[in-house]
Design a protein around this nucleic acid. Structure first.
Lengths: 205, 205
DNA sequence: CTCTCATATTGTGTCGACAAAATTGTCGAC
DNA sequence: GTCGACAATTTTGTCGACACAATATGAGAG
């Protein structure tokens, strides 16, 4: 849906009031449909609705962000582990080549958008290889909520280079078919992102 | 909500068709409200809705159950770890006494309902102590989906006694303020439940 | 000029009705 | 007797309208 993108991409800033009639006109549908999607977004914790007072885009509190990252570390770790267990080691070769070649240049050129595009492709492959719909859903939900944070972290000084190294380590473990190491690397990556976040907390949140 | 209980408690068997007008009459509300709650239940994966074809209670496939347990193992482990990190070790004393005394008798008497009542209290305390709303939500969602499975596992021969020992080990780790051990025990407990499930798969699923 | 209370306005919650789609039942042909 | 097509019924999807709650506005008193 369009709204989901708009919110998780922060085209709508936190605290924005989402009025039903307004949205209904914009998308040329009835309020019923709008209310349905608002319910969906509320479940996903992208908006908050108070009875008789309407819906607002959630403002991420510091505590909430770290709570998300605590869970995310676990889930990404499990995802890497399952991917290592279930996928053919050779199937990661193409990604390894991308992360050894082009990605290196994206970091040098500070080409953030190309970097995150490839990164997303890698994540999608991981999730697909893990072949666990429950995990997939949970990660999706968390990713929606942290999308903005992720975008802010990746532009922090040195983060792209660090992240690239960590993803390379994960890929190496996957290539070697080593689930333990894959999990460890994936978790280390999230922990590292968390530490960047903590260090630059004042600038990001 | 009532419907949530009815579905996760399997008063409505899997495959049941949920018709909107029918439910609307039963609860004396409009179809709009029913549709809203159906949307909620769909998000929670308790029902499945196909366009223009209505809603049915989901039938848990074997693969889905193990997918749930893979994620649940992680989350329960994280929950125990956080609880050990954040809560006062002494605060677990009352639970230890319950699990040493009354629970022992419930197992001997095969008093399942009393057993699960105390177990739920323990789980609630764990989640509260972990103080992570994201984790709390994720566990809630998974627990809703696996409620029936849990009820079927716990009556398997020897499961109550085994589970009790495992929970005692977790409590001991919490009492000792040892996050690593708490996580290990909590995960071992879920893995053990999973192995029971695997062994008696034909009788449970 | 400021504070308070009554009123007006705005926006959400709920409802019933209409339209579209799918399922079921019936009739006819082979 | 069975298969297929058409019609009728049932059920969901969408819409506009009404009712209620919350907030904003304005008038009057201190």
């Amino acid at each position: 849906m369009i709204l989901r993108e708009r919110i998780s991409g922060h085209q709508l800033p936190p605290g924005s009031k989402l009025q039903e009639v307004e949205l209904a006109e914009e998308f040329a549908v009835s309020r019923s449909c709008i209310r349905e999607v608002l319910g969906f977004l509320e479940q996903r914790r992208l908006i908050r609705r108070e009875p008789n007072r309407g819906a607002v885009v959630v403002r991420l509190e510091v505590g909430q962000v770290f709570a998300l990252y605590e869970v995310r570390e676990m889930l990404e770790g499990l995802c890497a582990r399952l991917a290592a267990e279930k996928a053919e080691p050779a199937s990661w070769q193409d990604l390894i080549e991308i992360f050894d070649g082009p990605m290196e240049r994206y970091v040098e050129d500070a080409d953030v958008s190309a970097f995150v595009t490839e990164l997303d492709a890698f994540r999608r492959r991981l999730v697909a290889a893990a072949a666990n719909p429950v995990l997939s859903d949970a990660l999706d939900s968390i990713r929606d909520q942290t999308k903005v944070i992720i975008r802010r972290i990746i532009v922090l000084p040195g983060r792209m280079a660090t992240g690239l190294q960590e993803h390379r380590a994960t890929l190496a473990a996957l290539r070697a078919g080593d689930p333990d190491e894959a999990e460890r690397c994936a978790r280390a990556n999230i922990r590292s992102a968390k530490s960047f976040l903590k260090r630059f907390e004042a600038y990001v949140l």
